[in-house]
Amino acid sequence: KKIKIKIKVYNPETKEVLELEIEVSEEEAEELAKKLAEELEKKGYKIEEVEI
């Protein structure tokens, strides 16, 4: 079964909002969402919402 992940991120420095969407297997979904959120935060983005 495929799971659709939508991530909306906001960069306070540039006032930019990015929306990302990807489909992955159920097993990958939670781990991938967690890794993406961590990487984006390292780059200065503030995570507003992660929906699985």
Score class of each variant (00 low, 15 high):
K6G: 02
E39I: 06
K4A: 12
K15H: 12
Y10C: 13
V50Y: 04
L32Q: 14
V24E: 08
E19W: 05
I52S: 03
N11F: 06
V50L: 13
I5D: 00
I47M: 02
I47V: 10
E51Y: 15
E51G: 06
E13R: 05
K43I: 08
K2C: 15
E16D: 05
L18W: 05
L40T: 01
L18E: 05
L40I: 03
V50K: 01
E41Q: 15
E38W: 11
K46Q: 09
P12M: 10
E28I: 10
E21N: 10
E51Q: 08
E49L: 15
V9D: 00
A29H: 07
V50N: 03
K1L: 14
K43D: 07
E26A: 13
L40M: 07
I22K: 06
I7R: 00
E41P: 02
E39N: 04
I52K: 01
I7Q: 00
E39M: 14
E31Q: 06
E48Y: 11
K6W: 04
K2Q: 10
K1G: 12
E48G: 02
I7T: 00
V9G: 15
Y45R: 00
K46T: 08
V17W: 08
E27M: 10
K42Q: 10
K34V: 04
I3G: 06
I3P: 04
E48L: 07
I52D: 01
L40F: 07
K4Y: 14
A29I: 02
E41V: 11
K15M: 04
P12G: 11
E41W: 04
V50H: 02
A37D: 01
V9M: 14
V17T: 05
V24Y: 04
K15D: 09
I7M: 12
E23D: 09
E30F: 11
K34S: 04
K43L: 04
G44I: 00
L20F: 12
I5Y: 02
E49H: 07
E31L: 11
E21R: 08
Y10M: 10
L36H: 04
T14S: 13
K8S: 07
I3K: 06
E31M: 09
E21H: 09
E28Q: 10
Y45N: 02
I52V: 07
E13G: 09
L40Y: 12
E31V: 04
E39P: 00
E49W: 10
K43W: 08
K2E: 07
K6H: 13
L36M: 11
E13M: 14
E13I: 11
K35G: 07
V9K: 01
A29P: 04
K15F: 14
S25K: 05
K8Y: 04
E51D: 13
E48F: 09
V9C: 05
A33G: 11
K34Y: 03
E30H: 14
G44K: 00
K15Y: 12
I52P: 02
E19T: 09
T14H: 04
I7Y: 12
V17S: 11
L18N: 06
E21D: 04
L32C: 14
E49T: 12
K35P: 00
E21A: 13
E19D: 10
K46F: 12
T14E: 03
I52Y: 11
E16S: 05
L32M: 11
G44M: 01
E39T: 04
I5T: 00
E27K: 07
A37S: 13
Y10E: 03
P12C: 15
N11G: 02
A37H: 04
L20G: 03
K34M: 09
K2I: 12
L36A: 05
E51P: 01
E48I: 13
Y10Q: 05
E38C: 12
E39V: 06
K43F: 05
E27Y: 07
L36Q: 02
L20T: 04
I22T: 10
I3V: 05
K1W: 07
E28M: 11
K35F: 08
E30V: 12
E51H: 12
I52E: 02
E38I: 06
E26I: 12
E26Q: 15
E23K: 05
I3T: 15
E48Q: 04
E26L: 03
N11A: 05
V24P: 02
N11V: 10
I22F: 13
E19Y: 09
I47E: 00
K42F: 06
K35R: 14
L18F: 14
V24F: 03
I47W: 02
T14A: 05
G44F: 01
E27F: 10
V24N: 02
I3N: 14
A33C: 12
V17D: 05
